[in-house]
Design a protein around this nucleic acid. Structure first.
Lengths: 274, 274
DNA sequence: CGCGCTCTTGAATTCGATCAACTATGGTGG
DNA sequence: CCACCATAGTTGATCGAATTCAAGAGCGCG
Protein backbone atom coordinates (compact mmCIF):
# COMPACT_ATOMS: atom_id res chain seq x y z
CA UNK A 1 0.00 0.00 0.00
CA UNK A 2 1.54 3.25 -1.07
CA UNK A 3 0.16 5.43 1.68
CA UNK A 4 1.66 3.43 4.46
CA UNK A 5 5.21 4.58 4.15
CA UNK A 6 4.62 8.10 2.93
CA UNK A 7 4.13 9.58 6.33
CA UNK A 8 7.16 8.16 7.89
CA UNK A 9 9.40 8.86 4.92
CA UNK A 10 8.66 12.56 5.06
CA UNK A 11 9.34 12.53 8.74
CA UNK A 12 13.02 13.30 8.91
CA UNK A 13 12.81 15.98 6.24
CA UNK A 14 10.62 18.23 8.34
CA UNK A 15 12.00 20.91 10.61
CA UNK A 16 10.56 19.33 13.69
CA UNK A 17 12.32 18.38 16.88
CA UNK A 18 14.68 15.59 15.96
CA UNK A 19 14.38 12.18 17.48
CA UNK A 20 17.14 12.47 20.05
CA UNK A 21 15.12 15.05 21.93
CA UNK A 22 12.08 12.85 21.85
CA UNK A 23 13.91 9.89 23.18
CA UNK A 24 15.22 12.12 25.91
CA UNK A 25 11.65 12.63 27.09
CA UNK A 26 11.44 8.97 27.91
CA UNK A 27 14.98 8.59 29.14
CA UNK A 28 14.73 11.33 31.69
CA UNK A 29 11.36 10.39 33.07
CA UNK A 30 11.58 9.60 36.75
CA UNK A 31 15.32 9.75 36.62
CA UNK A 32 16.42 10.27 40.21
CA UNK A 33 19.51 12.15 39.10
CA UNK A 34 17.56 14.71 37.14
CA UNK A 35 18.87 18.05 38.36
CA UNK A 36 15.42 19.47 39.03
CA UNK A 37 13.23 16.73 40.33
CA UNK A 38 14.85 16.57 43.74
CA UNK A 39 14.60 20.24 44.68
CA UNK A 40 11.52 21.25 46.68
CA UNK A 41 10.75 24.13 44.36
CA UNK A 42 12.89 23.38 41.36
CA UNK A 43 11.76 26.29 39.28
CA UNK A 44 12.82 28.87 41.80
CA UNK A 45 15.97 27.12 42.95
CA UNK A 46 18.01 26.28 39.91
CA UNK A 47 17.16 29.44 38.05
CA UNK A 48 19.18 32.34 36.75
CA UNK A 49 18.02 35.89 37.12
CA UNK A 50 18.44 36.90 33.52
CA UNK A 51 16.43 39.92 32.50
CA UNK A 52 13.65 39.70 29.96
CA UNK A 53 12.98 42.26 27.29
CA UNK A 54 10.03 44.57 27.77
CA UNK A 55 8.36 43.01 24.77
CA UNK A 56 8.44 39.58 26.32
CA UNK A 57 6.80 40.82 29.49
CA UNK A 58 4.20 42.64 27.49
CA UNK A 59 3.33 39.53 25.49
CA UNK A 60 2.80 37.60 28.65
CA UNK A 61 1.03 40.18 30.77
CA UNK A 62 -0.87 42.13 28.13
CA UNK A 63 -2.99 45.12 29.01
CA UNK A 64 -1.53 48.60 29.26
CA UNK A 65 2.15 49.17 28.38
CA UNK A 66 4.41 48.28 31.26
CA UNK A 67 6.10 51.20 32.98
CA UNK A 68 9.77 51.19 34.06
CA UNK A 69 9.04 50.44 37.70
CA UNK A 70 6.96 47.45 36.78
CA UNK A 71 9.63 46.18 34.44
CA UNK A 72 12.43 46.46 36.94
CA UNK A 73 10.35 44.89 39.70
CA UNK A 74 9.40 42.00 37.44
CA UNK A 75 12.98 41.47 36.38
CA UNK A 76 14.08 41.57 39.98
CA UNK A 77 11.64 38.88 41.13
CA UNK A 78 11.68 36.68 38.06
CA UNK A 79 13.39 33.34 38.03
CA UNK A 80 14.25 32.29 34.53
CA UNK A 81 14.94 28.74 33.56
CA UNK A 82 16.32 27.24 30.41
CA UNK A 83 15.24 23.62 30.26
CA UNK A 84 16.07 20.82 27.84
CA UNK A 85 13.37 18.78 26.18
CA UNK A 86 11.95 16.23 28.58
CA UNK A 87 12.91 18.10 31.73
CA UNK A 88 10.29 18.29 34.45
CA UNK A 89 9.10 21.81 35.26
CA UNK A 90 7.02 21.07 38.31
CA UNK A 91 5.19 18.13 39.85
CA UNK A 92 1.63 17.90 40.99
CA UNK A 93 2.62 17.09 44.56
CA UNK A 94 4.64 20.26 44.78
CA UNK A 95 3.30 23.30 46.60
CA UNK A 96 2.71 26.07 44.10
CA UNK A 97 4.71 29.05 45.30
CA UNK A 98 5.17 30.71 41.93
CA UNK A 99 3.18 31.89 38.98
CA UNK A 100 4.71 29.89 36.16
CA UNK A 101 4.85 30.81 32.50
CA UNK A 102 6.44 29.44 29.34
CA UNK A 103 8.36 32.04 27.36
CA UNK A 104 9.54 29.92 24.50
CA UNK A 105 9.05 26.29 23.53
CA UNK A 106 6.30 23.91 24.49
CA UNK A 107 5.50 22.47 27.88
CA UNK A 108 2.96 19.73 28.44
CA UNK A 109 0.69 19.34 31.42
CA UNK A 110 -0.48 15.92 32.50
CA UNK A 111 0.44 13.13 34.84
CA UNK A 112 3.38 10.85 35.25
CA UNK A 113 2.00 7.37 35.53
CA UNK A 114 4.26 4.92 37.22
CA UNK A 115 6.23 2.78 34.82
CA UNK A 116 4.55 4.17 31.78
CA UNK A 117 4.65 7.14 29.50
CA UNK A 118 3.83 10.63 30.51
CA UNK A 119 0.08 10.99 30.32
CA UNK A 120 -0.34 14.25 28.43
CA UNK A 121 -3.47 16.28 28.99
CA UNK A 122 -2.78 19.56 27.27
CA UNK A 123 0.25 21.46 26.08
CA UNK A 124 1.14 25.09 26.38
CA UNK A 125 3.16 26.92 23.79
CA UNK A 126 5.10 30.00 24.84
CA UNK A 127 4.68 32.78 25.46
CA UNK A 128 1.80 31.90 27.74
CA UNK A 129 0.98 31.18 31.35
CA UNK A 130 1.56 27.62 32.43
CA UNK A 131 -0.01 27.72 35.88
CA UNK A 132 -1.38 31.05 37.00
CA UNK A 133 -4.02 29.65 39.34
CA UNK A 134 -2.61 27.10 41.79
CA UNK A 135 -0.44 29.52 43.73
CA UNK A 136 -3.36 31.78 44.63
CA UNK A 137 -5.20 28.85 46.14
CA UNK A 138 -2.23 27.89 48.25
CA UNK A 139 -2.42 24.43 46.80
CA UNK A 140 -0.15 22.16 44.88
CA UNK A 141 0.15 22.38 41.14
CA UNK A 142 -2.66 20.15 39.96
CA UNK A 143 -0.66 18.62 37.13
CA UNK A 144 2.85 17.51 36.33
CA UNK A 145 4.55 19.72 33.81
CA UNK A 146 7.41 18.78 31.56
CA UNK A 147 9.08 20.22 28.53
CA UNK A 148 8.08 18.83 25.18
CA UNK A 149 10.78 20.83 23.50
CA UNK A 150 13.66 22.92 24.77
CA UNK A 151 11.97 25.71 26.67
CA UNK A 152 12.48 28.93 28.57
CA UNK A 153 10.34 28.92 31.67
CA UNK A 154 9.59 31.80 34.02
CA UNK A 155 8.63 31.72 37.67
CA UNK A 156 7.31 34.69 39.62
CA UNK A 157 7.21 34.17 43.39
CA UNK A 158 3.70 34.81 44.59
CA UNK A 159 4.77 36.75 47.67
CA UNK A 160 6.74 39.26 45.64
CA UNK A 161 4.04 39.43 43.04
CA UNK A 162 1.54 40.38 45.72
CA UNK A 163 3.69 43.33 46.67
CA UNK A 164 3.90 44.53 43.10
CA UNK A 165 0.17 44.01 42.74
CA UNK A 166 -0.45 46.41 45.60
CA UNK A 167 1.98 49.00 44.29
CA UNK A 168 1.12 49.11 40.62
CA UNK A 169 -2.49 49.80 39.75
CA UNK A 170 -2.35 48.17 36.33
CA UNK A 171 -0.99 44.84 37.49
CA UNK A 172 -4.15 43.26 38.93
CA UNK A 173 -5.97 43.51 35.67
CA UNK A 174 -3.12 41.92 33.75
CA UNK A 175 -3.36 38.86 35.95
CA UNK A 176 -7.14 38.83 35.93
CA UNK A 177 -6.97 38.88 32.16
CA UNK A 178 -4.60 35.95 32.11
CA UNK A 179 -6.83 33.92 34.39
CA UNK A 180 -9.92 34.87 32.44
CA UNK A 181 -8.25 33.56 29.31
CA UNK A 182 -7.48 30.28 31.08
CA UNK A 183 -11.10 29.94 32.10
CA UNK A 184 -12.21 30.62 28.56
CA UNK A 185 -9.88 28.01 27.12
CA UNK A 186 -10.89 25.41 29.67
CA UNK A 187 -14.53 26.16 29.03
CA UNK A 188 -14.15 25.38 25.35
CA UNK A 189 -12.17 22.28 26.20
CA UNK A 190 -14.89 20.86 28.43
CA UNK A 191 -17.50 21.85 25.87
CA UNK A 192 -15.69 19.95 23.15
CA UNK A 193 -15.23 16.89 25.31
CA UNK A 194 -18.88 16.87 26.34
CA UNK A 195 -20.53 17.43 23.01
CA UNK A 196 -18.22 16.63 20.12
CA UNK A 197 -17.10 13.23 18.88
CA UNK A 198 -13.52 12.43 17.92
CA UNK A 199 -13.88 13.53 14.32
CA UNK A 200 -15.35 16.88 15.27
CA UNK A 201 -12.67 17.48 17.85
CA UNK A 202 -9.97 16.69 15.32
CA UNK A 203 -11.51 19.02 12.76
CA UNK A 204 -11.68 21.81 15.31
CA UNK A 205 -8.10 21.15 16.34
CA UNK A 206 -6.87 21.27 12.75
CA UNK A 207 -8.66 24.54 12.18
CA UNK A 208 -7.17 26.07 15.30
CA UNK A 209 -3.73 24.95 14.26
CA UNK A 210 -3.97 25.89 10.61
CA UNK A 211 -5.09 29.43 11.15
CA UNK A 212 -1.94 31.05 9.77
CA UNK A 213 -2.44 29.48 6.36
CA UNK A 214 -3.23 31.26 3.12
CA UNK A 215 -6.48 31.22 1.21
CA UNK A 216 -5.69 28.27 -1.05
CA UNK A 217 -5.63 26.01 1.98
CA UNK A 218 -3.85 26.42 5.26
CA UNK A 219 -0.53 24.65 5.51
CA UNK A 220 0.01 22.78 8.70
CA UNK A 221 3.26 21.41 10.06
CA UNK A 222 2.79 19.09 12.98
CA UNK A 223 5.51 19.89 15.48
CA UNK A 224 4.68 17.23 18.03
CA UNK A 225 4.33 13.50 17.94
CA UNK A 226 0.99 12.30 16.70
CA UNK A 227 0.45 10.37 19.90
CA UNK A 228 0.72 13.63 21.77
CA UNK A 229 -1.84 15.22 19.51
CA UNK A 230 -4.07 12.23 20.10
CA UNK A 231 -3.67 12.57 23.85
CA UNK A 232 -4.78 16.18 23.73
CA UNK A 233 -7.82 15.16 21.74
CA UNK A 234 -8.50 12.38 24.25
CA UNK A 235 -8.31 9.65 21.62
CA UNK A 236 -5.83 6.88 20.91
CA UNK A 237 -3.09 7.21 18.29
CA UNK A 238 -4.82 4.49 16.29
CA UNK A 239 -8.02 6.45 16.14
CA UNK A 240 -6.19 9.61 15.15
CA UNK A 241 -4.54 7.74 12.30
CA UNK A 242 -7.89 6.46 11.08
CA UNK A 243 -9.52 9.87 11.41
CA UNK A 244 -6.80 11.52 9.36
CA UNK A 245 -7.26 8.88 6.70
CA UNK A 246 -11.00 9.54 6.68
CA UNK A 247 -10.49 13.26 6.27
CA UNK A 248 -8.00 12.60 3.48
CA UNK A 249 -10.47 10.33 1.71
CA UNK A 250 -13.19 12.93 2.05
CA UNK A 251 -10.87 15.48 0.46
CA UNK A 252 -10.80 17.80 3.44
CA UNK A 253 -7.07 17.55 3.98
CA UNK A 254 -4.05 16.69 1.88
CA UNK A 255 -0.51 15.64 2.57
CA UNK A 256 1.02 12.83 4.52
CA UNK A 257 3.00 12.35 7.64
CA UNK A 258 3.70 15.59 9.44
CA UNK A 259 2.95 18.02 6.61
CA UNK A 260 -0.72 18.62 6.00
CA UNK A 261 -2.79 21.06 4.06
CA UNK A 262 -6.36 21.90 4.90
CA UNK A 263 -7.86 21.93 1.42
CA UNK A 264 -11.42 22.66 2.46
CA UNK A 265 -11.51 24.69 5.62
CA UNK A 266 -15.19 25.45 5.20
CA UNK A 267 -16.13 21.80 5.10
CA UNK A 268 -13.90 21.25 8.11
CA UNK A 269 -15.66 24.03 9.95
CA UNK A 270 -18.99 22.55 9.02
CA UNK A 271 -17.84 19.15 10.23
CA UNK A 272 -16.64 20.65 13.50
CA UNK A 273 -20.19 21.88 13.97
CA UNK A 274 -20.64 25.59 13.17
CA UNK B 1 -40.87 -5.62 38.50
CA UNK B 2 -40.80 -4.09 41.91
CA UNK B 3 -37.96 -1.70 41.45
CA UNK B 4 -39.50 0.09 38.53
CA UNK B 5 -42.04 2.16 40.39
CA UNK B 6 -40.13 2.72 43.59
CA UNK B 7 -38.23 5.72 42.37
CA UNK B 8 -41.16 7.60 41.01
CA UNK B 9 -43.39 6.88 43.97
CA UNK B 10 -41.05 8.49 46.41
CA UNK B 11 -40.74 11.46 44.14
CA UNK B 12 -43.46 13.75 45.41
CA UNK B 13 -42.67 13.09 49.03
CA UNK B 14 -39.26 14.64 48.82
CA UNK B 15 -38.57 18.27 49.59
CA UNK B 16 -37.36 18.99 46.11
CA UNK B 17 -38.55 21.59 43.67
CA UNK B 18 -42.07 20.60 42.74
CA UNK B 19 -43.04 19.79 39.23
CA UNK B 20 -44.62 23.11 38.31
CA UNK B 21 -41.24 24.79 38.51
CA UNK B 22 -39.71 22.15 36.39
CA UNK B 23 -42.32 22.45 33.77
CA UNK B 24 -41.75 26.17 33.86
CA UNK B 25 -38.22 25.59 32.69
CA UNK B 26 -39.54 24.18 29.50
CA UNK B 27 -42.50 26.48 29.20
CA UNK B 28 -40.49 29.64 29.40
CA UNK B 29 -37.73 28.62 27.06
CA UNK B 30 -37.57 30.92 24.08
CA UNK B 31 -40.65 32.72 25.21
CA UNK B 32 -40.51 36.11 23.49
CA UNK B 33 -42.49 37.72 26.27
CA UNK B 34 -40.09 36.69 28.97
CA UNK B 35 -39.36 39.89 30.85
CA UNK B 36 -35.62 39.47 30.66
CA UNK B 37 -34.75 37.97 27.35
CA UNK B 38 -35.45 41.09 25.32
CA UNK B 39 -33.29 43.53 27.26
CA UNK B 40 -29.73 44.04 25.97
CA UNK B 41 -28.24 43.49 29.42
CA UNK B 42 -31.10 41.99 31.36
CA UNK B 43 -29.27 41.45 34.55
CA UNK B 44 -28.37 45.08 34.98
CA UNK B 45 -31.62 46.50 33.70
CA UNK B 46 -34.46 44.85 35.53
CA UNK B 47 -32.67 44.74 38.83
CA UNK B 48 -33.31 46.25 42.21
CA UNK B 49 -30.56 47.77 44.28
CA UNK B 50 -31.27 45.92 47.48
CA UNK B 51 -28.35 45.79 49.85
CA UNK B 52 -26.66 42.54 50.72
CA UNK B 53 -25.45 41.61 54.15
CA UNK B 54 -21.75 41.72 54.85
CA UNK B 55 -21.75 37.99 55.33
CA UNK B 56 -23.08 37.36 51.86
CA UNK B 57 -20.40 39.51 50.28
CA UNK B 58 -17.77 37.77 52.32
CA UNK B 59 -18.95 34.33 51.24
CA UNK B 60 -18.69 35.34 47.64
CA UNK B 61 -15.48 37.36 47.69
CA UNK B 62 -13.56 35.56 50.38
CA UNK B 63 -10.12 36.73 51.48
CA UNK B 64 -9.65 39.37 54.15
CA UNK B 65 -12.70 40.78 55.97
CA UNK B 66 -14.42 43.47 53.93
CA UNK B 67 -14.07 46.99 55.28
CA UNK B 68 -16.95 49.52 55.40
CA UNK B 69 -15.86 51.39 52.27
CA UNK B 70 -15.72 48.19 50.27
CA UNK B 71 -19.13 47.14 51.51
CA UNK B 72 -20.81 50.41 50.70
CA UNK B 73 -19.17 50.61 47.27
CA UNK B 74 -20.25 47.06 46.49
CA UNK B 75 -23.79 47.70 47.60
CA UNK B 76 -23.86 50.86 45.51
CA UNK B 77 -22.80 49.16 42.30
CA UNK B 78 -24.55 45.84 42.77
CA UNK B 79 -27.62 44.92 40.79
CA UNK B 80 -29.64 42.29 42.54
CA UNK B 81 -32.13 40.11 40.78
CA UNK B 82 -34.73 37.72 42.09
CA UNK B 83 -35.56 35.28 39.34
CA UNK B 84 -38.12 32.49 39.11
CA UNK B 85 -37.18 28.98 38.12
CA UNK B 86 -36.66 28.73 34.40
CA UNK B 87 -35.85 32.38 33.89
CA UNK B 88 -32.90 33.18 31.64
CA UNK B 89 -30.06 35.00 33.34
CA UNK B 90 -27.95 35.84 30.34
CA UNK B 91 -27.42 34.55 26.82
CA UNK B 92 -24.25 33.56 25.10
CA UNK B 93 -24.66 36.17 22.38
CA UNK B 94 -24.84 38.89 24.95
CA UNK B 95 -21.85 41.15 25.63
CA UNK B 96 -20.61 40.49 29.15
CA UNK B 97 -20.62 43.83 30.95
CA UNK B 98 -21.00 42.49 34.47
CA UNK B 99 -19.41 40.03 36.81
CA UNK B 100 -22.29 37.71 37.58
CA UNK B 101 -22.81 35.61 40.69
CA UNK B 102 -25.52 33.41 42.15
CA UNK B 103 -26.37 34.22 45.75
CA UNK B 104 -29.04 31.66 46.38
CA UNK B 105 -30.55 28.89 44.32
CA UNK B 106 -29.12 27.03 41.35
CA UNK B 107 -28.35 28.35 37.89
CA UNK B 108 -27.35 26.16 34.99
CA UNK B 109 -24.90 27.00 32.24
CA UNK B 110 -25.31 25.47 28.81
CA UNK B 111 -26.85 26.16 25.47
CA UNK B 112 -30.33 26.69 24.20
CA UNK B 113 -30.70 24.47 21.21
CA UNK B 114 -33.39 25.48 18.81
CA UNK B 115 -36.62 23.56 19.24
CA UNK B 116 -35.20 21.31 21.90
CA UNK B 117 -34.45 21.26 25.57
CA UNK B 118 -31.91 23.39 27.26
CA UNK B 119 -28.58 21.67 26.82
CA UNK B 120 -27.12 21.76 30.32
CA UNK B 121 -23.38 21.73 30.74
CA UNK B 122 -22.81 22.51 34.38
CA UNK B 123 -24.76 24.06 37.17
CA UNK B 124 -23.75 26.56 39.80
CA UNK B 125 -25.17 26.58 43.28
CA UNK B 126 -25.13 29.84 45.20
CA UNK B 127 -23.32 31.49 46.72
CA UNK B 128 -20.75 31.31 43.93
CA UNK B 129 -19.58 33.13 40.84
CA UNK B 130 -21.52 32.36 37.70
CA UNK B 131 -19.38 34.15 35.14
CA UNK B 132 -16.38 36.00 36.48
CA UNK B 133 -14.26 35.70 33.36
CA UNK B 134 -16.09 36.83 30.23
CA UNK B 135 -16.36 40.49 31.15
CA UNK B 136 -12.60 40.90 31.53
CA UNK B 137 -12.09 39.60 28.02
CA UNK B 138 -14.59 42.05 26.58
CA UNK B 139 -16.40 39.12 25.05
CA UNK B 140 -19.85 37.69 25.18
CA UNK B 141 -20.83 35.25 27.88
CA UNK B 142 -19.76 31.95 26.43
CA UNK B 143 -22.83 30.06 27.65
CA UNK B 144 -26.51 30.61 28.16
CA UNK B 145 -27.49 30.75 31.80
CA UNK B 146 -30.90 30.02 33.24
CA UNK B 147 -32.33 29.38 36.64
CA UNK B 148 -32.86 25.77 37.63
CA UNK B 149 -34.62 26.89 40.78
CA UNK B 150 -35.78 30.23 42.07
CA UNK B 151 -32.60 32.21 42.47
CA UNK B 152 -31.09 35.46 43.63
CA UNK B 153 -28.55 36.68 41.11
CA UNK B 154 -26.04 39.44 41.46
CA UNK B 155 -24.42 41.57 38.77
CA UNK B 156 -21.45 43.86 39.32
CA UNK B 157 -20.75 46.24 36.43
CA UNK B 158 -17.18 45.77 35.31
CA UNK B 159 -16.49 49.49 34.92
CA UNK B 160 -17.42 50.25 38.48
CA UNK B 161 -15.63 47.18 39.73
CA UNK B 162 -12.45 48.41 38.06
CA UNK B 163 -12.67 51.64 40.05
CA UNK B 164 -13.08 49.76 43.31
CA UNK B 165 -10.25 47.48 42.32
CA UNK B 166 -7.92 50.47 42.03
CA UNK B 167 -9.06 52.00 45.30
CA UNK B 168 -9.10 49.01 47.61
CA UNK B 169 -5.90 47.03 47.87
CA UNK B 170 -7.54 43.82 48.98
CA UNK B 171 -10.06 43.59 46.14
CA UNK B 172 -7.78 42.31 43.36
CA UNK B 173 -6.84 39.23 45.29
CA UNK B 174 -10.47 38.41 46.03
CA UNK B 175 -11.22 38.29 42.33
CA UNK B 176 -8.01 36.48 41.50
CA UNK B 177 -8.98 33.88 44.04
CA UNK B 178 -12.41 33.46 42.50
CA UNK B 179 -10.95 33.01 39.04
CA UNK B 180 -8.31 30.63 40.32
CA UNK B 181 -11.05 28.50 41.82
CA UNK B 182 -12.86 28.46 38.48
CA UNK B 183 -9.71 27.31 36.75
CA UNK B 184 -9.25 24.60 39.33
CA UNK B 185 -12.80 23.33 38.94
CA UNK B 186 -12.59 23.34 35.16
CA UNK B 187 -9.28 21.55 35.30
CA UNK B 188 -10.79 18.70 37.26
CA UNK B 189 -13.75 18.64 34.91
CA UNK B 190 -11.60 18.19 31.83
CA UNK B 191 -9.50 15.66 33.66
CA UNK B 192 -12.56 13.60 34.51
CA UNK B 193 -13.90 13.78 30.98
CA UNK B 194 -10.58 12.75 29.49
CA UNK B 195 -9.66 9.89 31.75
CA UNK B 196 -12.67 8.52 33.60
CA UNK B 197 -15.51 6.43 32.23
CA UNK B 198 -19.15 7.03 33.05
CA UNK B 199 -19.17 4.87 36.15
CA UNK B 200 -16.14 6.56 37.63
CA UNK B 201 -17.53 10.00 36.94
CA UNK B 202 -20.80 9.06 38.58
CA UNK B 203 -19.01 7.68 41.63
CA UNK B 204 -16.97 10.86 41.92
CA UNK B 205 -20.10 12.97 41.53
CA UNK B 206 -21.93 11.04 44.23
CA UNK B 207 -19.01 11.45 46.60
CA UNK B 208 -18.84 15.19 45.97
CA UNK B 209 -22.53 15.48 46.57
CA UNK B 210 -22.76 13.25 49.60
CA UNK B 211 -20.03 14.93 51.58
CA UNK B 212 -22.29 16.23 54.34
CA UNK B 213 -23.38 12.75 55.32
CA UNK B 214 -22.66 10.98 58.58
CA UNK B 215 -20.33 8.05 59.11
CA UNK B 216 -22.89 5.29 58.63
CA UNK B 217 -23.30 6.32 55.00
CA UNK B 218 -23.89 9.74 53.54
CA UNK B 219 -27.49 10.60 52.81
CA UNK B 220 -28.04 12.18 49.47
CA UNK B 221 -31.14 14.00 48.28
CA UNK B 222 -31.13 14.67 44.56
CA UNK B 223 -32.51 18.14 44.06
CA UNK B 224 -32.43 18.20 40.28
CA UNK B 225 -33.90 16.06 37.57
CA UNK B 226 -31.87 12.98 36.81
CA UNK B 227 -31.56 14.03 33.20
CA UNK B 228 -29.83 17.18 34.40
CA UNK B 229 -27.45 15.16 36.48
CA UNK B 230 -26.78 13.00 33.47
CA UNK B 231 -26.09 16.08 31.35
CA UNK B 232 -23.50 17.29 33.80
CA UNK B 233 -21.84 13.89 33.71
CA UNK B 234 -21.94 13.95 29.91
CA UNK B 235 -23.97 10.76 29.70
CA UNK B 236 -27.55 10.00 28.66
CA UNK B 237 -30.35 9.62 31.21
CA UNK B 238 -30.65 5.97 30.20
CA UNK B 239 -27.02 5.33 31.04
CA UNK B 240 -27.34 7.12 34.37
CA UNK B 241 -30.30 4.93 35.23
CA UNK B 242 -28.36 1.79 34.41
CA UNK B 243 -25.29 2.97 36.33
CA UNK B 244 -27.33 3.65 39.44
CA UNK B 245 -28.79 0.18 39.18
CA UNK B 246 -25.30 -1.27 38.88
CA UNK B 247 -24.12 0.58 41.97
CA UNK B 248 -27.19 -0.57 43.84
CA UNK B 249 -26.58 -4.18 42.85
CA UNK B 250 -22.97 -3.89 43.92
CA UNK B 251 -24.13 -2.63 47.29
CA UNK B 252 -22.38 0.72 47.04
CA UNK B 253 -25.56 2.76 47.29
CA UNK B 254 -29.04 2.26 48.70
CA UNK B 255 -32.39 3.88 48.21
CA UNK B 256 -34.51 4.57 45.21
CA UNK B 257 -35.69 7.52 43.26
CA UNK B 258 -34.35 10.79 44.58
CA UNK B 259 -33.28 9.65 48.01
CA UNK B 260 -30.00 7.77 48.08
CA UNK B 261 -27.55 6.65 50.69
CA UNK B 262 -23.91 5.99 49.99
CA UNK B 263 -23.47 2.80 51.97
CA UNK B 264 -19.84 2.22 51.07
CA UNK B 265 -18.07 5.48 50.42
CA UNK B 266 -14.68 3.81 50.48
CA UNK B 267 -15.60 1.43 47.72
CA UNK B 268 -17.04 4.35 45.80
CA UNK B 269 -13.81 6.27 46.21
CA UNK B 270 -11.87 3.23 45.05
CA UNK B 271 -14.15 2.92 42.07
CA UNK B 272 -13.68 6.59 41.23
CA UNK B 273 -9.98 5.85 41.02
CA UNK B 274 -8.01 6.96 44.11
C1' DC C 1 -60.09 10.27 31.67
C1' DG C 2 -56.20 11.38 28.35
C1' DC C 3 -52.00 14.03 27.87
C1' DG C 4 -47.43 15.20 28.88
C1' DC C 5 -43.66 14.56 31.52
C1' DT C 6 -39.90 11.68 33.83
C1' DC C 7 -37.74 7.65 34.61
C1' DT C 8 -36.67 2.84 33.59
C1' DT C 9 -35.70 -1.19 30.89
C1' DG C 10 -34.44 -3.95 26.87
C1' DA C 11 -32.51 -4.60 22.09
C1' DA C 12 -29.85 -2.97 18.46
C1' DT C 13 -26.20 -0.15 16.99
C1' DT C 14 -22.15 2.66 16.84
C1' DC C 15 -18.07 4.76 18.17
C1' DG C 16 -13.77 4.33 19.84
C1' DA C 17 -10.48 1.35 22.48
C1' DT C 18 -7.77 -2.66 22.63
C1' DC C 19 -5.00 -6.19 20.74
C1' DA C 20 -2.04 -7.76 17.38
C1' DA C 21 0.46 -7.50 13.20
C1' DC C 22 3.47 -4.99 10.12
C1' DT C 23 6.37 -1.02 8.03
C1' DA C 24 9.59 2.50 8.42
C1' DT C 25 13.15 4.93 10.70
C1' DG C 26 17.16 5.86 13.59
C1' DG C 27 20.57 4.49 16.85
C1' DT C 28 23.84 1.04 18.65
C1' DG C 29 27.31 -2.09 18.69
C1' DG C 30 29.39 -5.93 16.49
C1' DC D 1 28.70 -1.89 6.94
C1' DC D 2 25.12 -4.64 8.68
C1' DA D 3 22.37 -6.97 12.19
C1' DC D 4 19.68 -5.77 15.89
C1' DC D 5 16.63 -3.20 18.64
C1' DA D 6 13.57 0.50 20.08
C1' DT D 7 10.16 3.69 18.76
C1' DA D 8 6.48 5.85 15.80
C1' DG D 9 2.96 5.21 12.93
C1' DT D 10 -0.49 2.52 10.21
C1' DT D 11 -3.83 -0.99 9.52
C1' DG D 12 -7.07 -4.75 10.50
C1' DA D 13 -9.91 -7.60 13.69
C1' DT D 14 -12.29 -7.70 17.68
C1' DC D 15 -14.30 -6.10 21.92
C1' DG D 16 -16.78 -3.12 24.93
C1' DA D 17 -18.92 0.98 26.68
C1' DA D 18 -22.38 4.01 25.93
C1' DT D 19 -25.79 5.81 22.70
C1' DT D 20 -29.92 5.34 20.16
C1' DC D 21 -34.34 3.49 19.45
C1' DA D 22 -38.45 1.68 21.20
C1' DA D 23 -41.62 0.51 24.69
C1' DG D 24 -43.76 0.79 29.07
C1' DA D 25 -44.77 2.52 33.98
C1' DG D 26 -45.78 6.14 37.34
C1' DC D 27 -47.33 10.61 38.29
C1' DG D 28 -49.45 15.30 38.00
C1' DC D 29 -52.50 18.14 35.64
C1' DG D 30 -56.35 20.00 32.87
Amino acid sequence: MQRKDGGARLRHILPIPSSPERIAIVDRSYSPTSPLSAAPSPVARASARAALSGGEWQQLLGGAPLNPDELSALNRMAHLLRLPAGAPVFGREQPALDLVAVLKGTVSLGQCREGQDFDLERSVQGPAWLDLSSAWLGQCHDRDARCLSEARVLALPLAEMRALLARQAAMPERLLLGLARSVHRLNSATHELMHMDAEKRLAAWLLRRGEGGGQGGALLQLTERKRDIAAQLAITPETLSRMLRQLRLKGLIEGQGYALRLTDTQALARLAGE
